[in-house]
Design a protein around this nucleic acid. Structure first.
Lengths: 336, 336
DNA sequence: CTGAAAGCGCTAACAT
DNA sequence: ATGTTAGCGCTTTCAG
């Protein structure tokens, strides 16, 4: 491809050495005369010189690329996350490479390998199914810094982004019990990652704190998708609960459809609370009550932490906590 | 970063030369003895050798990366598109690098530059606001093959993906007029790209074919987002139409909310037809009637065409056409 | 069958 | 203040 103009051509054209050009263009040209500097800069513009990326990286042992692995691009939660990552990366002049692994462990391993092969400087892994072993086997040997999000924390040593999932679950449970609901369900993926388990734990605690017996909570499994929420409708209805806490908003929206098709009303027949607070929540009918997490911000900070680590490898372990909050809308109501 | 094992280490360990290793690992080792070949392969495994990407690219002048520019990751239409691109790329062992420019021309130019800087082999540009000049100025000089989608076709010479937008618009118009609607609106972005203008043209033609006067169609502007659809509610209602054709599904869903908040019913008070057929359409209430385009397939084929072009630069101009179809659901009904 | 050597485009010690 | 030189890790003639 590409008819690239090389640094040598710039040097010739400017009548200086290659070193001079290199130094000046990398802002290490303090020692050169104003005149030389200007000339080089001018020639660079004129020739549209762009340093060859591969040659540069080969020497610098850095690609200025960040690998980002997420489970599902189609989930607005993750597209917002990616947006945050992109924004910060741009400011920091890194380039995020994102792959969506569609909840497929093989794909994750594949993309992880590809990312490493292309020598990304660091990794943001926001993918639930990836195993500690895969990371250990692929990432560790190369000593590529990485950051885990929304996922089992393998070690306590790595930098971390923490969202208060326990509190989120608690808020959901508190809200629902305060509305008088006594039999409750939680809709969540089978073998959930730690963060989702935390939501469940918080939810349970709130139920207990409300003085309700533990077996008033029924857990129903469904993957993170509208389709899965829709499919779960029957189980939920059969369970005889009056309120359900969905581990993400997509699940809730799927459930809406299942109820609608049966002529049931939200929240009259069933109160529903979601999780994430995606934009869509305000566009469904009724508007979805949910637990908000500041996802774009989380994306930004993920990139931030990672870049920090890359540029200052010896700083202390970093930890950022994010709050969640209850957003009351129209999908939850008093128990009839 | 990375404690990489180099080709030299493999060569030493295997007791052969660097050349030998290189040849064998690149499947050009026909001339070597079975024994040597096996030994090299074994050592490669043992040492977990992975060729340095940058060094390799530096020589081969190819990065096996595809740049992908889209307007909005949050739009399910584009996330499906990306999924298609990713799938094909994987099969073809290319690596797509995708950026979402959020409908911002500056961002587009920025990312386009970045992509080129990182020496992608080819480009898929599915971003509406980018200008022909930007492409001409940035892409042309580097002779990087590119493919435009969902966007003004700058020249007739490039490879092309065509979706029958005209027909899509026609189908929408035909459907609505057959239901008896006489005053119609189309909701579309200001200064739309060619593909959207084609939808409008088809829509107009269908109206004319139904024997309705031209000024029975009112055009209302709104960007591609739920928010914009929502904001447009008043204009639509004020226009006195009984049916509206939204240039994408998101717009329709935004409109749903505006109507809901005013206590109006779809399709009784207003018939709505969308465009794209995103998954969400079946999860809103009422289910959205729309024009389907096979977007994941389009994504796949975009990547396919581009990779073809990269690997066989001299093949004839490629053109693939995709059909659209009307998906009747519940958001359109007889004019009352 | 195998290896030595050149060089891709760039950066950075180390001269001058 | 500027240039010379030696690689980075790899592929590829070209010679054995």
């Amino acid at each position: 491809m590409a008819k690239k103009v090389t640094i040598r051509q710039v040097a010739n054209e400017a009548g200086v050495s290659v070193t001079t050009v290199s130094q000046i263009l990398n802002n290490k040209g303090g020692r050169f005369s104003e005149k030389t500097r200007n000339k080089v800069l001018a020639v660079k513009e004129k020739l549209h010189y762009v340093p060859d990326f591969n040659a540069r990286n080969l020497i610098l042992h850095s690609s200025k690329m960040l690998g980002v692995l997420i489970p599902d691009l189609g989930n607005p939660f993750f597209s917002s996350f990616v947006k945050g990552v992109q924004d910060y990366s741009r400011d920091a002049t890194y380039m995020p490479i994102v792959f969506s692994a569609n909840h497929d462990a093989n794909l994750e391993t594949y993309y992880l390998g590809k990312l490493l092969e292309h020598s990304v400087d660091g990794l943001i892994i926001a993918s639930a199914t990836i195993t500690a072993e895969a990371i250990d086997k692929l990432v560790k040997p190369l000593q590529v810094p990485y950051l885990l999000f929304d996922q089992n924390q393998i070690a306590n040593l790595a930098d971390r982004i923490e969202v208060d999932d326990y509190h989120g679950g608690y808020l959901a449970g508190q809200h629902l019990t305060q509305l008088g609901h006594q039999k409750l369900a939680m809709l969540l993926p089978k073998d959930s990652t730690v963060n989702v388990c935390e939501r469940l734990r918080g939810f349970k605690t709130a139920i207990k704190d409300a003085g309700l017996p533990e077996n008033n909570l029924v857990e129903i499994n469904a993957n993170f998708s509208m389709e899965a929420g829709y499919q779960a409708t029957k189980s939920i209805l059969d369970s005889g609960v009056s309120a359900v806490f969905c581990a993400d908003d997509l699940l809730a929206i799927g459930l809406y459809r299942g109820l609608e098709e049966r002529g049931l009303k939200v929240p009259d027949d069933l109160s529903i609370i979601g999780y994430d607070d995606i934009d869509l929540d305000q566009y469904v009918n009724p508007k979805l009550t949910t637990i908000d997490q500041p996802v774009a911000e989380i994306g930004r900070e993920s990139a931030h932490l990672l870049v920090n680590r890359l540029e200052k490898p010896d700083i202390d372990r970093q930890l950022i906590k994010f709050p969640v909050k209850l957003i009351k809308r129209e999908s939850t109501g008093l128990k009839k």
